[in-house]
Design a protein around this nucleic acid. Structure first.
Length: 201
DNA sequence: CCGGGGATTATCT
DNA sequence: GATAATCCCCGGC
């Protein structure tokens, strides 16, 4: 296991990066508490040309500022006033591409994640859906801007590539208001994994 | 199993 | 003041 290198995030094709993030491990290490999970679902948000993106048409505010940061930065924002959403910033500085981590499969620190989410036992709801991922990993808005090759939030890879036949592709979830862009096939998930949100198999 | 609707608040208009 | 890249519970079949 080694950290995903900066060059992985610096590539131009955010959709390809979203697909290749499947199978990698997200780790958080806050206050000595280490929790991690394998990524099983992602969505790409393709900068200023993508109507579903916070940075569509170059919109730039205090909230989405970190989308414009250099590759390998964490972008975290709040949705529906209560969910902490974890994104990985890609491409070069000033180009606001990002990948939303929608679901992970718990790996380490499951007891800590249970405590954070107030659950008694491990079941598929622990880290299913982006809101739950942020909650289980202990991620909050103030962690936005952290560098993903640092020691608080980082990604690991084991060198294996997810087999093509295990990858499912669909349109993104919850972006109906994005018009035609809502239909783009920018969501990737591990087929058959019970932590994947929605109702696939 | 599936669909509907309430919760709850930062953010933008 | 409206909206939002969601989740969970509940009722109905």
């Amino acid at each position: 296991m080694k950290k995903v290198p900066l060059s992985f995030y610096q590539r131009k094709d955010v959709v390809k990066i979203a697909k290749e993030l499947l199978g990698k491990i997200v780790v958080t290490n806050f206050d000595g508490k280490v929790t991690s999970g394998r990524i099983v679902e992602t969505e790409a948000y393709a900068g200023i040309a993508d109507k579903a993106s916070h940075s569509f048409a170059g919109r730039r505010t205090a909230r989405n500022e970190h989308m414009y940061s250099a590759a390998g930065t964490a972008y975290i924002y709040i949705c529906y006033g209560m969910h902490q959403m974890l994104n990985v910033v890609t491409n070069e500085k000033e180009i606001p591409d990002a990948v939303l981590i929608r679901a992970i499969e718990p790996v380490k620190g499951i007891d800590i994640m249970l405590k954070r989410t107030g659950k008694n036992k491990l079941d598929k709801s622990l880290t299913r859906g982006p809101g739950n991922v942020g909650k289980a990993l202990g991620i909050f808005k103030h962690h936005s801007g952290l560098y993903l090759l640092d020691e608080e939030i980082f990604l690991l890879e084991d060198g294996k590539k997810m087999p093509e036949e295990n990858i499912g592709i669909s349109k993104r979830i919850g972006v109906e208001s994005a018009g035609a862009d809502a239909l783009l096939p920018y969501r990737f998930y591990v087929k058959g994994n019970k932590y994947v949100s929605g109702k696939n198999s």
